[in-house]
Design a protein around this nucleic acid. Structure first.
Lengths: 300, 300
DNA sequence: TTTATGTACTAAATAATTAAATGCAAGACA
DNA sequence: TGTCTTGCATTTAATTATTTAGTACATAAA
């Protein structure tokens, strides 16, 4: 019942690797130096040295440390399997919510989620605390957490907020210098949109990816930590719902392609007002799509 | 080493209060009913009932429960001092950061913060995890947390983000129906601004409060959980820095009053474009002020 | 004087533990 | 017979205790 000693184990192996580079009988550097090499504190280094001495790899008396023999493969210490990295927990969590269409006001059990995602409970708690800032989850008075999201109100507010951010992004694109990578990106996007428009009867479901790329390109111009954080969540949610609402998908995607092209036209003409108008039209369509996809889920 | 039984203790006292309303020898409702009354689970209610029986307050056999005597003051159970409520932890934390001018890239010790704010470490971790979503703090590789905020970049990005949100708010105010409370608020603000303008030589430091109220009023029109969450943080940061930058405070505040009045004029004339222009001018001034206050802190 | 180690203390991560919640089955009562 | 209630068992969550790791200072060696 205490923290794991992974840090020590990893440091130990790193020190072994370092020792392999030393000539036989070489003196071992100071604790401080080793701490720098392994990127840990002296406390950990001393544990490593103790073990090295016990295994007869080094002699250690006072400040006199010498390598006794070359490290072998079996000297290495086992490092516990790195748990599924919690870095993309957000992606996987939202994926789970959206894929299984978890309804609003579902109580979330940390214990259960911890099993599902194979992530320690405390990582999850930290993660949920973060999401609560976005109003996606909240604490329940009896303890535990509750999924709030994906009500109609949520969708409306999310769409509105997205509109605000994207209107701003569009304004910034117009101001971007000619050598900004966004222009190359938009040129490519125009070509890809036109290509898909030709093959829309067959490849209409390819649009979802293109849509995501389109919005990402436009937003890439905005360098803002606050906005960037939100964009990740927003794009994921829209991406999924867009994919799932199958009603008139082909027709809807064809229309969206034209809306995108209108935005690209206005941007390349550096016409701020026209671009904002075109973007607004497109975002309104998106909002409607998101809302209708929610409605279908509710009914079905 | 386990969770506290505060919940049980509070529930017990609540049940006592309920019993006081009952006539002598009255039957006690079912466990489920009591659970509803006290807002806890049946498990807690059973602990309460056990104690009530032990103290001879009730008889309890099977599902037959009767009140034996009226509860007295000394029957109440002691509830551990409610720790300083963690709800306004955010306020107090930001207050601390800003008041002591904690520099960027300061390591934050959960243990120390826990003592400072008299909040369990547990709560703090959750809180910091939330703040990390706003890019105010981040995890350190060696463990622990680190305060990121209040560099120049941070201030710029925060200001820009604020501009985006407020431009949007201003656009919404113009569209607000005539009976919306914002119009009364603005009328009052106009009067207060004019009054302060008269007495600016003496009361110029009163402006900070007025500024906060002004921005709050405008943003109150926007009903959006995402934006609301940010506004709290943003307004606090600007509020403090505004108060502290003493350079030319009087002149600066006088100018800001005029900028506010210009915005109010445009809003009341329902002139969206003029309002956005006026807001933009004011937000640019604010940004400059925030940046210059940072510069002074760096030099001092 | 400088640098390394010894020692002591502080802090963070996390498993263990108890409080609380919940689900299910059987019994009581109408 | 059906509904409400309680008894029992299991699961979950909050919080502490404990171990690992980091850090500061004293002391000793070079």
């Amino acid at each position: 019942m205490a923290r794991s000693d992974t840090r020590y184990r990893e440091a130990y192996n790193r020190i072994l690797t370092y020792c392999e580079t030393l000539p036989p009988k070489a003196p071992i550097p100071s604790e401080t130096r080793l701490a720098e090499i392994a990127g840990v504190s002296r406390t950990v280094i001393r544990r490593c040295l103790t073990r090295l001495e016990e295994l007869g790899l080094i002699s250690w008396q006072g400040r006199d440390k010498h390598l006794l023999r070359q490290p072998r493969a079996e000297d290495r210490i086992a490092v516990p399997e790195a748990a599924a990295d919690p870095s993309d927990l957000e992606q996987r969590f939202l994926d789970w919510v959206l894929r299984f269409d978890v309804p609003a006001n579902t109580p979330l059990s940390v214990a259960e989620l911890s099993r599902t995602f194979e992530v320690p409970q405390y990582d999850l708690k930290e993660f949920l605390a973060g999401l609560s800032r976005f109003g996606l989850v909240s604490r329940r008075p009896q303890g535990g957490w509750m999924l709030l999201g994906f009500t109609k109100d949520f969708a409306i507010e999310l769409s509105d907020f997205r509109s605000v951010l994207e209107q701003n992004a569009v304004s910034q694109v117009v101001e971007a210098p000619v050598d900004h990578p966004v222009w190359a990106g938009l040129a490519q996007l125009r070509a890809d949109h036109l290509a898909l428009k030709q093959a829309i009867d067959r490849d209409f479901h390819e649009f979802s990816k293109l849509d995501e790329r389109f919005h990402q390109t436009i937003n890439s111009v905005v360098r803002n930590r606050f906005i960037a954080e939100f964009q990740k969540v927003i794009s994921l949610i829209f991406h999924y719902h867009y994919m799932w609402d199958k009603t008139e998908e082909k027709h809807r995607n064809a229309a969206a392609i034209d809306e995108h092209l209108a935005i690209i036209d206005a941007l390349e003409a550096r016409d701020a007002e026209a671009a904002r108008d075109a973007a607004l039209r497109h975002l309104r369509t998106s909002k409607t799509t998101l809302l209708s996809s929610l409605r279908h889920h509710d009914l079905g």
